[in-house]
């Protein structure tokens, strides 16, 4: 492990000032010399593996602002402070009651120990678990732009079928982000030029030709809060995660579903898909296919077909297309049948 400087800023503004070096304006946060660390459950691993090589870490855990550690629930919004731990949010009774999808997506992620360490903002920014990304002797356009992609023709069982490019097929593995994108969450960011709000759907960037650039954030910007609007579909919401083992594994396919029902008829649906795409993945075509329909087998299946219409499977991950569809169908029925 390379030596690095470790500093503990005392407020958001101090943290931003410390991060606002010249290089912060030109490189992605993951390539910057100065990087933020919160729970450290992802970055510390990558530093040990040589995947991330920051020369200076700014520890956000010492920021003084109390709101960073709070969950505020009002009639129309749940506001998560960026430093709230995954475990805290998963166990919060208001969150569980008002929007089960949020709590479930956190509960089914990682392990108890990791959930107690990892911050919510850090969690949504977690990097891919692609095996070829994690080990520095493989070619990887995300880790080392222009070096190629070993996964493309290699062992790609866990890789994405949606949102892929010729440069990268690495899956975005997070669970919480699927809930957030489905629920039209908004991310509040502080930076050199003051605060700004980013719709969650615009936080992550498709890999395209630059898979190394993963988000819309600058290297000196800090997420301070995540707002989730509470709507008619929030209570009837669910996260279904399908994986190789029953706990402590990434999704092979997952579905975040929220439904506003009028009897048997879907008034509005909100759907996101995990484990199958390169970024948090909103399935708008599936939502449209359900709107105004009675939720029955063929309707749900058509919605699932729509969600995967553009899927590009590769040698080992073709199963993710039927699995992703069936995961969505099952999640739709389970959500429909929720007692709310």
């Amino acid at each position: 492990m390379r030596p690095f400087v470790y500093e503990r800023p005392t407020s958001v503004s101090v943290a931003i000032a410390m991060a606002s070096h010249v290089d912060a304006r030109h490189v992605a946060p993951t390539q910057a010399n100065t990087q933020f660390i919160a729970g450290g459950t992802n970055l510390a691993d990558h530093m040990k593996l040589g995947v991330a090589q920051p020369v200076r870490l700014l520890d956000l855990n010492t920021l003084a602002e109390p709101a960073l550690r709070q969950i505020r629930v009002t009639d129309d919004t749940i506001r998560f402070g960026a430093l709230v731990r995954m475990g805290e949010a998963a166990d919060n009774n208001d969150v569980k009651h008002r929007c089960p999808l949020l709590a479930d997506s956190l509960k089914f992620a990682a392990s108890g120990q990791l959930r107690n360490m990892a911050s919510l903002a850090g969690n949504v920014l977690q990097r891919t678990r692609c095996e070829y990304f994690r080990e520095t002797s493989w070619a990887c356009n995300k880790r080392e732009p222009g070096s190629g992609c070993a996964a493309m023709e290699g062992f790609n069982r866990q890789h994405a079928v949606l949102g892929t490019s010729d440069a990268c097929i690495a899956t975005y593995h997070g669970d919480f982000a699927q809930a957030l994108i489905a629920l039209d969450a908004v991310v509040e960011v502080e930076g050199r030029h003051g605060p700004r709000k980013i719709p969650f759907a615009r936080l992550h960037r498709l890999p395209g030709d630059t898979p190394d650039i993963e988000t819309d954030l600058a290297a000196d910007e800090v997420i301070v809060a995540i707002d989730v609007p509470l709507e008619a579909w929030s209570r009837r919401s669910r996260y279904l995660k399908i994986r190789d083992r029953e706990s402590y594994a990434f999704a092979l396919a997952s579905a975040a579903v929220a439904l506003d029902m009028d009897g048997d008829t879907v008034r509005q649906a909100r759907i996101a898909l995990g484990g199958v795409a390169t970024v948090p993945w909103r399935a708008r075509a599936a939502e449209a296919a359900l709107q105004g329909k009675v939720m029955e087998e063929d309707v749900a299946e058509k919605a699932a077909d729509a969600a995967f219409a553009d899927a590009k499977p590769r040698e080992h991950n073709a199963f993710k297309v039927p699995l992703g569809k069936r995961t969505l169908v099952r999640a739709l029925f389970e959500t429909r049948d929720m007692k709310v």
């Binding site: 678990r129 095996e131 070829y132 994690r134 080990e135 070993a150 023709e153 290699g154 062992f155 069982r157 866990q158 190789d244 083992r245 029953e246 706990s247 402590y248 594994a249």
Partner: peptide, 23 residues
């Protein structure tokens, strides 16, 4: 898992080499 092109193991850690957990 072996990358057959180069005879290299791919999933060399407990993240990707799965064993049963309590659940």
């Amino acid at each position: 898992e072996i990358d057959r092109r180069n005879a290299r193991y791919v999933n060399r850690d407990l993240q990707d080499y799965l064993v049963p957990v309590n659940a």
